[in-house]
Amino acid sequence: MQVNVFVRTDETQQYHLLVTPYGPTAAIPDQLKHLSWRNLAVTTLDDRLLSSVSPIIDAQNVVNGYALVSLKA
């Protein structure tokens, strides 16, 4: 499955990834648009960056249509 990956950091320097399904209608959800997201990549869920959290991303995508994942630097 191809996905769009957006990234932002917070005041604690923790990374937050927003993962949305890839496609022409994919967009940052309205409730998250006020945050400063940068487009990181278009990739697949078996990418090394995402592979450890891909089950979480799959589950959240089914429920929400997007996934939020936090990673420590």
Rank of each mutant, 00 (worst) to 15 (best):
E11M: 12
E11H: 11
E11C: 09
T12I: 08
T12D: 14
T12P: 02
Q14K: 15
Q14Y: 12
Y15N: 07
Y15A: 06
Y15I: 03
H16T: 09
H16E: 10
L17N: 01
L17I: 07
L17K: 01
L17Q: 01
L18W: 01
L18T: 01
L18G: 00
V19N: 01
V19G: 00
V19F: 01
V19M: 01
T20I: 02
T20Q: 00
T20S: 02
T20K: 00
T20Y: 00
T20A: 03
T20H: 00
P21T: 08
P21S: 09
P21K: 07
P21C: 05
Y22T: 02
Y22M: 04
Y22G: 01
Y22H: 11
G23H: 03
G23M: 02
P24S: 09
P24Y: 04
P24D: 09
P24I: 05
T25K: 15
A26T: 13
A26F: 08
A26M: 08
A26Y: 06
A27E: 14
I28Y: 03
I28N: 04
P29L: 10
P29I: 10
P29N: 13
P29E: 11
Q31E: 14
L32F: 11
H34V: 09
H34M: 09
L35P: 05
W37F: 10
W37R: 05
W37A: 05
R38K: 12
R38H: 11
N39S: 15
N39A: 15
L40R: 05
A41H: 03
V42H: 08
V42E: 14
V42T: 14
V42M: 11
V42Y: 07
T43Y: 07
T43V: 15
L45T: 10
D46E: 14
D47Y: 05
D47Q: 08
D47C: 07
L49F: 12
L50V: 08
L50C: 09
S51Y: 06
S51F: 04
S52N: 11
V53T: 11
V53E: 06
V53L: 07
S54H: 04
S54L: 01
S54M: 03
P55F: 02
I56Q: 13
I56M: 11
I57S: 01
I57L: 04
I57F: 01
D58S: 10
D58C: 06
D58F: 03
A59E: 13
Q60P: 01
